[in-house]
């Protein structure tokens, strides 16, 4: 990562844990996870709580739907690390990587339920323009999305707009396909806490 403190500024016990993860999993701990251990009381702990709540808390969206939203937001922010991580996680959750790739490639032509398409379209406008208006939200509601589902999608957007910007600001190292796959399995099993 770009800051030396994020590469070397961890306590001895944390460094040992990083080494054990590498030893037993065969993969280095991803920088997204390492970041949350640096002065974890400042950012890591509350950020993990919020991200877990948004991605794994109660919602009428499936885990796969929310991981897809995370990948979509990351794609709009051109965050290669987060696109890789959440494309892998959504693909594993849906057990359908081709579908995820098609949606990320072209939202409008992909085979996708209309409520999810309308929601991703609204998130795209929010990311690109920094704002949406009531008419945009009426279109989402008219597609069959409940107000609570909109709120849940906006929480995912907030979580991954933050993470994807931090990934590129701090320079998260990209993973190998095997590393993304291992990360996806972990995130589906354990979540973000």
């Amino acid at each position: 990562m770009h800051l030396d403190i994020l590469n070397h500024g961890y306590r001895p016990g944390t460094k040992l844990m990083f080494a054990l993860v590498r030893l037993f999993s065969g993969q280095p701990l991803p920088d997204a996870a390492k970041l949350t251990f640096y002065r974890s009381d400042f950012y890591g702990n509350p950020a993990k709580e919020f991200t877990h709540e948004a991605l794994r808390g109660p919602s009428d969206w499936s885990v796969g739907d929310r991981e897809l939203m995370a990948a979509y937001v990351s794609k709009l922010n051109q965050s290669a690390f987060c696109v890789g991580a959440h494309t892998a996680t959504a693909s594993l959750a849906y057990q359908d990587g081709e579908r995820v790739a098609a949606i990320l490639d072209d939202l409008e032509s992909a085979a996708i339920d209309e409520p999810l398409r309308a929601t991703l379209r609204m998130l795209g406008k929010l990311i690109r323009n920094g704002r949406v208006d009531a008419d945009d939200l009426r279109e989402v509601l008219a597609a069959g999305v409940s107000p609570q589902q909109v709120k849940d999608a906006l929480a995912v957007c907030a979580a991954f707009n933050t993470t994807s910007r931090l990934a590129d600001a701090f320079g998260f190292e990209l993973l190998t396909p095997k590393g993304y796959e291992a990360g996806a399995k972990y995130l589906l099993k354990r979540g973000y806490r």
Partner: peptide, 25 residues
Amino acid sequence: LVICAAVGHSTRLYEAGLAALAEAV
């Protein structure tokens, strides 16, 4: 400061979306 900037930007998006939803509802 980087974290504050990223979280601040996301907060503005979150609040803009929630405000538009509140108006629509």
